[in-house]
Amino acid sequence: MTSNFVQNGEFRAIAAGSFETGIIEAMAEWCDALHGGTSLEDAFAHLAIGFGAEAALLVRTNMTDFRPTRIAVWDRRSASTSSPLTSSFADGCFGRPLARPRPGSIWLASTHEDDAGETPDPALANWQDRRGLTEFAALVLTGGPPVRDHIELHFTNPVPGPVQAAFAAVMPTMARTWASRQVGLVARTALSNRAPRDTGQGKGPVGGSVLGITNPARLSRAEFRVCLLLSRGRSVLGVAEELAVSESTIRSHLRSIYAKTNTSNLAELVFRLLATTQDDDLSDRNCA
């Protein structure tokens, strides 16, 4: 039995034995990356290629507001398409059933039955049409709360039997090794992944620290204090208690801070605030 996958813009068939060997090698690199032995982004790319995906996203979702944060992204055609992979589609596709998924579970869009009476978000279908893709899979690493971590894979063709079998075979190991990953790995990788996208886009401060002496984001005194406390590991509630104000007041400040710093949620803001912090300091914050 063979499985087709795209490499360097061309299709080539590989034997089942070679396919399995590629998955084993990618899994070994993935496990090594989770303990700091190699780059998580590189390991994630090799894993996506091994599965035969056209594009892939490693995502962390805050389960209180369902806002996703990209940890790592790989897209085979990122340099040649006007519609690169930039967004998470899992919640829009699978809806409420994905709110509390089982770690290690596998979700295929083609076999998902919506029994909650929800209308799927058309964003995935629209993007698939632009890219000529037909299948979407979500592989759950952690089910939350407070966060859900999962992998999203996009395919040109229906997922063949060997790939589905590979999903089932490796997901228990992937979920287990993810749970024991190196502290601070998610924060460092997300920071590294954001840096190229921020540079030169002309939307808010892209150089230097948000908390730098020149105050490049033009934060107010109250906003600056909020950012300072967040950079020291405080939660939103912790910041409110420290400043003796309501949590709603802090969230109002945050909306203004997001606009000034070109961030869209709390996770992205914290990553930006930690951008000039030493890696050793990251391990002391809740960014595992």
Results as ranks from 00 to 15, higher is better:
residue 160 P to E: 11
residue 161 G to S: 10
residue 163 V to W: 01
residue 169 A to E: 10
residue 174 M to W: 09
residue 175 A to L: 07
residue 176 R to L: 12
residue 177 T to L: 03
residue 178 W to C: 03
residue 178 W to L: 02
residue 179 A to S: 14
residue 183 V to C: 06
residue 184 G to T: 08
residue 185 L to C: 05
residue 187 A to M: 13
residue 187 A to E: 12
residue 187 A to W: 08
residue 188 R to I: 09
residue 189 T to P: 04
residue 191 L to K: 11
residue 193 N to C: 14
residue 194 R to P: 00
residue 195 A to C: 00
residue 196 P to I: 03
residue 197 R to N: 12
residue 197 R to Y: 13
residue 198 D to F: 13
residue 199 T to W: 12
residue 201 Q to F: 10
residue 203 K to R: 15
residue 203 K to C: 11
residue 204 G to S: 08
residue 206 V to K: 03
residue 207 G to R: 14
residue 208 G to W: 07
residue 210 V to L: 14
residue 210 V to A: 06
residue 211 L to C: 02
residue 212 G to L: 08
residue 215 N to G: 04
residue 218 R to H: 11
residue 219 L to S: 02
residue 222 A to P: 00
residue 225 R to E: 13
residue 228 L to W: 10
residue 228 L to F: 09
residue 228 L to G: 02
residue 228 L to N: 10
residue 229 L to F: 05
residue 230 L to K: 03
residue 230 L to G: 02
residue 230 L to P: 00
residue 231 S to C: 03
residue 232 R to D: 12
residue 235 S to T: 15
residue 235 S to Q: 03
residue 236 V to P: 02
residue 236 V to M: 10
residue 236 V to N: 07
residue 237 L to G: 15
residue 238 G to V: 00
residue 239 V to Y: 05
residue 241 E to V: 04
residue 242 E to A: 15
residue 244 A to H: 12
residue 246 S to M: 02
residue 246 S to F: 01
residue 247 E to Q: 13
residue 248 S to W: 04
residue 248 S to M: 11
residue 248 S to P: 00
residue 250 I to Q: 08
residue 250 I to N: 06
residue 250 I to F: 05
residue 254 L to V: 01
residue 254 L to H: 01
residue 256 S to H: 10
residue 258 Y to F: 15
residue 259 A to Y: 01
residue 260 K to W: 02
residue 261 T to G: 05
residue 261 T to N: 02
